[in-house]
């Protein structure tokens, strides 16, 4: 009954969840939108922000070659105007980089951060009307201290220049892009196997320490040569307990073994009749009980 209820639940649940899937936009607000703070260092601008999917702040450095960097700001854009641009892929969001250069000149705009990887690309509007967004063709260079630099060449009045006119002022809108799903799935696998690795290492540690402890305990139980008595060892047994004959011990051991074997057989082939023990088991039990009887037979003892 419970199983049926659970099956029903499992059938209903995905339907409900799928029905809800369309409604996610209702609560899919961008609660992690980065809020960069800008500072200046020499000719460069530094943005300090907490990107989406991170708890700690990162730094992004902006630099312009062949011109002068005049300003950098975060670029607000309406997601509904760019349905093909998924903000999840742009974890540090978009920036507007403004530079001055000779009219019609080409400048190299570079964006670098230790947060970027070799897979990070630089996206932005690639047409003069700013409607088509895509990869800007930036080159990704690995620097020291795990910093990656993305460099894009922009010509004043060219397709990457937001104002579209050759006037000595260049505005580039770019956002470092990392595949959200690539990151999510990649990290999923790495971290799931990471749990196995952590517990696997602990397993190895415990196996090794377990062996050591078992050896130590066994060693501690063995009497050393110094402590061995010269006379017969004083066995801590009550004097009244009769010694069990070796035959009896063998019979008991065999009975126990057969009983254990029977259990194992039961596990692999199904239940066997417990009321019909083997002849060996019966003999063992009988002998065991028979040897014990004199101890309790007070009348005979007297």
């Amino acid at each position: 009954m419970r199983f049926k209820q659970l099956c029903m639940g499992f059938m209903v649940m995905p339907v409900l969840l799928l029905a809800c899937a369309g409604a996610w936009a209702a609560f899919g607000e961008d609660i992690e939108k980065p809020k960069p703070e800008f500072s200046q260092q020499d000719d460069d601008r530094i943005a300090r922000l907490i990107p989406r999917g991170k708890s700690t702040a990162i730094q992004i450095r902006f630099h312009v070659e062949g011109g002068a960097l005049t300003a950098v700001s975060d670029k607000q854009y309406a997601a509904e105007n760019h349905p093909k641009v998924d903000s999840k892929n742009f974890r540090s969001d978009f920036f507007s980089i403004q530079a001055s250069a000779a009219t019609g000149a080409e400048v190299a705009v570079s964006v670098s951060s230790a947060y970027f990887t070799s897979a990070t690309d630089l996206w932005g509007p690639v047409s003069i009307d700013s409607l088509t967004w895509g990869p800007t063709g930036a080159t990704n260079t690995a620097l020291a201290d795990r910093v990656n630099r993305l460099t894009v060449k922009v010509r004043d009045g060219g397709p990457l220049d937001a104002d579209g006119t050759a006037n000595g002022r260049i505005e580039v809108i770019v956002g470092p892009r990392d595949s959200f799903w690539g990151y999510a799935l990649g990290t999923l696998l790495i971290r799931f196997f990471g749990v196995f690795i952590v517990l696997g290492v602990l397993l190895l540690g415990m196996l090794v320490s377990g062996k050591i402890f078992q050896a130590l305990e066994a060693h501690a139980l063995q009497p050393s040569a110094e402590t061995l008595p010269t006379a017969a060892p004083a066995v801590a047994q009550p004097a009244s307990t009769p010694a069990v004959a070796p035959k009896t011990v063998a019979a008991i051991a065999l009975a126990l073994y057969l009983n254990d074997a029977e259990t194992r057989l039961e596990a692999s082939t199904g239940p066997v009749d417990h009321n019909a023990p083997s002849a060996w088991a019966l003999f063992g039990r009988g002998k065991l009980m028979g040897d014990r009887m004199p101890v309790f037979d007070r009348i005979q003892k007297k």
């Binding site: 749990v195 196995f196 952590v198 517990l199 696997g200 397993l203 415990m206 377990g210």
Partner: peptide, 8 residues
């Protein structure tokens, strides 16, 4: 300790 793998 083998049961650690089950926990993982």
């Amino acid at each position: 300790p083998k049961t650690l793998i089950i926990g993982a």
